[in-house]
Design a protein around this nucleic acid. Structure first.
Lengths: 158, 158
DNA sequence: CCAAAACCGACTGGTTCAGTAGGATTTGAG
DNA sequence: CTCAAATCCTACTGAACCAGTCGGTTTTGG
């Protein structure tokens, strides 16, 4: 498995926040209820997102979380990296601040045999993640409103 | 980290086998020595490769392993899958026998919010892996010969 | 004041990782 | 025939990570 449920739950959380149009914050328990995810686990995940500057929080009664930016400006590579840590195909692979890729065990002779492969893999993953915006996911999963099939609907913010 | 050292070591092992042109089998201890990897761990990995039909073995004295096919015909998706198990971005993602992708928790309403994302990621990874042959890695890592440890350059890589 | 909410850290059972250990079996060579 | 080299097989282990749970503190609106 490439990613753990941290990425899965965290992205679902972000999508849920991205649905809400206004600036009213949404409580975690609302999200947990809507997505059927454990609240106390979501707390850990949203903390990572907040530290990464992707969501903002307001404390106290009627508090909650909002996206820190419009969903069109949020690409999923940033989200996943915030949740899972730096995404690299292999332990020996590190992205330098200037963007270059380093393999820790390429010695005096040119290249280790696997570098070409992992470079391609990382390129594929990065392209897929960075080429997807949160707005796309919101759109894909049913637009601005939660699905209303079956008569059940979320309590409208009033 | 997307993959563990099983993929790393296993691919290095395959490349080492791919270097040898003839049909003489190479012992695991030779590979372990050349790549500086623990022999007893390599035994586990090569067992997976053998069960996947990627290498053949001959037992007894002067035995060892050979590639089951010419390296041009071996794509890395098969190798990595043999080592790591089915490569999917997420637990809920399963590739059906007919090639379709299923997300286990898409319920009555259309799609779960993350499916679009993971589909793209899996596409990127699969494309990178399936688009790379073992022959390419052998070529990239210094052709048929082992690297000369004297500051020699890999000028012939194309 | 009170309840709702964000925040924080500690803890836990389960699984995987990265090997190690100890053997059993097969085979070529002397 | 015997020995050494090799594949093959099962079991075990310490460490790390996963997926939560729990209890408690702080902030805030009504």
């Amino acid at each position: 498995m490439l990613f753990s449920t941290k990425a899965e739950y965290g992205v679902r959380l972000m999508v849920e926040l991205g649905r809400q149009p206004g600036s009213t914050p949404i409580s975690l328990s609302t999200v947990a209820d809507a997505e059927r995810l454990p609240l106390s686990y979501l707390e850990h995940l949203v903390a990572k997102l907040r530290k990464a500057g992707l969501v903002t929080s307001t404390r106290g009664a009627h508090g909650g979380y909002r996206l820190a930016m419009p969903p069109e400006e949020i690409t999923l590579d940033v989200v996943v990296e915030a949740l899972e840590g730096q995404v690299a195909p292999m332990e020996c692979f590190h992205r330098m601040p200037d963007g270059r890729v380093l393999c820790s065990h390429e010695g005096d002779d040119g290249a280790c045999a696997t570098k070409l492969l992992w470079t391609r893999v990382q390129g594929g993953v990065t392209k897929a993640l960075a080429g997807t915006t949160l707005a796309e996911l919101v759109e894909f999963s049913g637009g601005g409103e939660k699905a209303v099939k079956g008569g059940e609907k979320i309590a409208s913010a009033a």
